[in-house]
């Protein structure tokens, strides 16, 4: 992290150059673009209403009429998958945005104030980190009850600790830099120094990591939906689709396989993108 900070964050051109040279980053970017387009234009792309039940066409295998088959209520799997993209991306994006904001604030504050305060805050976050993400999300979701908002809150809370850690490390090295000292000599208060002089110099580290953590948030969302703590039915989500498919896995393989593939591709896209961004801001990797 220290190396990333000492590189020059003021040169986005160099970052883009390093990023665009990496071929896998283009694969990630293209995949993600497709997924986002699907989510935005879901009503135009989906061949059927995702909630429309059709008793006659129950558990139909993939065919020309139903490209990815139908589920036990006769709903079109492809249409549900397309609408599910919206939930997954929304939950992942908003949860990460919340976690990034709160986590960065905690991390900068702990790193800047230092001392006993830092130790207490980081100790508490270590306790949070010691729980597996899914278990922590499960506890919070069970406490709050199943709804879209609560799912987002639960996932956001589980991701705060890693963001605080990512924000704290560069803050500690930045607060000793000459321009922060110069800022204090100009009479700037701690809030201004943290917000105007430290945050912009480390935000790229945090943003880059956010795409990796968004993949994790989407996985958590699917897992919580799978065990029934996610968005309540009949709203289509990938996790709940897998669970329904899981019950019929021997008779209707398509129910579980396609949503699983959708999760796999989304997580893969975000990971490729995150890795490429992380490599691009690391000056040591950039030189190679």
């Amino acid at each position: 992290m220290g190396a990333a900070v000492s590189s020059s964050p003021a040169r986005p051109g160099g970052l883009w150059l390093a990023f665009s040279k990496n071929r896998l980053s283009w694969v990630g970017l293209a995949l993600l673009a497709i997924i986002i387009i699907v989510a935005i234009f879901a009503p135009l792309i989906a061949p059927y209403d995702p909630l429309e039940q059709n008793i006659v066409a129950r558990l139909e295998p993939p065919s020309a009429e139903f490209l990815l088959g139908t589920d036990s209520y006769g709903r079109d799997v492809l249409s549900r998958l397309i609408y599910g993209t919206r939930i997954s991306l929304t939950v992942g994006f908003i949860a990460i945005l919340i976690a990034m904001t709160i986590g960065s604030m905690i991390g900068i504050l702990a790193g800047y104030v230092g001392g006993v305060f830092d130790q207490i805050v980081m100790g508490l976050l270590d306790v949070m980190l010691s729980f597996p993400t899914l278990l922590l999300g499960l506890m919070i979701a069970a406490m709050l009850g199943a709804s879209l908002e609560n799912l987002i809150i639960a996932i956001a809370i589980t991701e705060i600790a890693p963001f605080a850690r990512i924000a704290r490390a560069p803050t500690i090295s930045l607060k000793q830099r000459d321009f922060v000292e110069a800022g204090r000599a100009l009479g700037f208060g701690p809030v201004r120094i943290m917000g105007v002089h430290i945050l912009p110099n480390m935000i790229s580290d945090v943003v880059v990591m956010s795409s990796l953590w968004m993949a994790s948030a989407i996985r958590t969302e699917a897992s919580l939906s799978f065990i029934g703590l996610g968005v309540p039915p009949p709203t289509p989500t990938w996790g709940s689709m897998i669970r329904e498919g899981f019950e019929n896995i021997l008779d209707a393989w398509w129910l579980a396989v396609f949503p699983s593939l959708a999760i796999l591709l989304t997580v893969l896209a975000l990971n490729l993108l995150g890795d490429a961004l992380r490599d691009a801001i690391d000056p040591k990797l950039r030189a190679e």
């Binding site: 020059s8 964050p9 000459d178 321009f179 000292e181 110069a182 000599a185 105007v196 002089h197 912009p200």
Partner: peptide
């Protein structure tokens, strides 16, 4: 106050 190191005493962003 003016400091010794002009190369690092300005905020790069």
């Amino acid at each position: 106050m003016i400091f010794q190191e002009p190369m690092t005493s300005l905020n790069p962003t």
